[in-house]
Write a protein that binds this DNA or RNA. Structure first.
Length: 118
RNA sequence: CGAGUAAGCCAGACAGUCGCGUGUACAGGGCGAAAGCCCGUCCACGAGGAAAGUCCGGGCUCCACAGGGCAAGGAUAACGGGUAACGCCCGCCGAAGGCGACUUCAGGAAAAGUGCAACAGAGAUAUACCGCCUCUUGGCAAUUGCCAAGGGGUAAGGGUGGAAAAGUGGGGUAAGAGCCCACUGGCCGGCUGGGAACAGUCCGGUCCUGUAAACUCUAUUCGGAGCAACACCGUGGGAGGACAUGAAGGUUGGCCCGACCGUCCUCAGGAGGUGGCUUGAGCCCGGCGGCAACGCCGGGCCUAGACAGAUGACUGUCCAAUACAGAACCCGGCUUAUAGGUUUGCUCGUCCG
RNA sequence: CCGGGUGUGGCGCAGUUGGUAGCGUGCUUGACUGGGGGUCAAGAGGCCGCAGGUUCAAGUCCUGUCACUCGGA
């Protein structure tokens, strides 16, 4: 994650939820909002309802890995929050990746449209 | 070989690419006066047997008392040992279960006292409903019998119940009764054995229903809170004191008017940061003591430490079984979850020698 | 990390010192009405979250466990 730091404070999460654009599938939801920094920031939310600690860690690691693969082709200067839904505990890595790329399409966050698909 | 029982071990492995956390090194790069910080490269290490539940016991930190005792409340409960300590562990005793190996047990006191025992049943911790025996009165019959009423004795028999006054047999009696005797069980005291619980073909006694996971009694033990503890640094703002007093200066503004603002020290500290933070009742190997839990001695090793929180993705081989599950101050236990593999001891059954 | 509470018919809840598990609403059947609504009568529906234990007997007492929920630092 070269150009990305993480979102840490709770008010920053709330700002993205309230003012950002959002897209969702059955597995995950994505919120995004422009910031004025030169770099992007990423936040991942996996609630308790998804599962126990092992399940939550696995989903979070997969989501972070997906973002790391696609990072170079995503437009910079965005605050992105990924929220894992309950069904994501049963999903395979490839399904999560397909949904994430589809939502990047909808939000128009690709640097060059159509690029970045693995 | 089959069935069972007890104890223990492993917790997918290897190779490659990309990526993450911590630490060390660097004559690398950037910033800086320096201390140092950021980036990069190399190397090392990087979740568990339960990390879980938070059920017990400690260490550590703060608060209270700083001496002792009593009361209230909680916890534990055969005995001996182990341990820093424990409600844990080991050994042993007793009881229950099992053909057996073995397993399970909140396993003190009911003879200090109180309470409770529904329904059923005559009666539930003490009883006279029926019955049995006897006496009085009356009637019938006329030797001793029968009927009715009343008084007394009795705990042998009686549909119940978890439990009916310790059980069986005999004597005894008007009828009966531990009323007496023999045997057996329970409990208490003594004697013998044992370190103790306890055991006994022993002796004496007898107040012999159950329930203390009902109150209670006895013995032992417990101050409270928890790493979001606690310590340090602390911008803005606040409180107190000293100095200064309507001058100068600063901010806003193109300029004027106008508006706002003193300096230093001390105190408590919400946001934030740093420490606490991993060398410890530590792990491994060998020897000795002990039935064992465990202890002692010698040698070797350093093995996660985050703070939105580090282990993932892809490919190949073995294999197709990958279960339960993620450290958050740290230890010793307990309980619960768990695919599959494997080791050792023992018991029972069948066959062969 | 510390500490509470709840779990009982389909739903919402009672159940005191252990002794045959109940109320409201909902459901089924019947009667009253020409029909519905309403009223009345009868009835079904419960392993009392789960598993052990104490007791003659457990929704109740004890232990373990699961789920939901609340509060504090």
């Amino acid at each position: 994650m070269i150009c990305t730091t993480s979102i840490k404070q709770n008010y920053e999460f709330r700002r993205v939820y309230n003012n950002g654009k959002s897209v969702a599938t059955g597995l995950i939801a994505v919120y995004c909002r422009k910031n004025r920094r030169g770099m992007s920031r990423l936040g991942i939310t996996v609630g308790t309802k998804v599962g126990k600690a092992v399940v939550r860690n696995k989903v979070r690691r997969r989501l972070r890995e997906i973002y790391r693969h696609c990072e170079s082709s995503i437009r910079r200067g965005q605050d992105i929050v990924i929220v894992a839904r309950v069904k994501s505990r049963y999903a395979a890595y490839s399904e999560l990746e397909r949904d994430f790329c589809r939502m990047m399409d909808k939000l128009g966050l690709w640097e060059i449209s159509g690029a970045g698909k693995p």
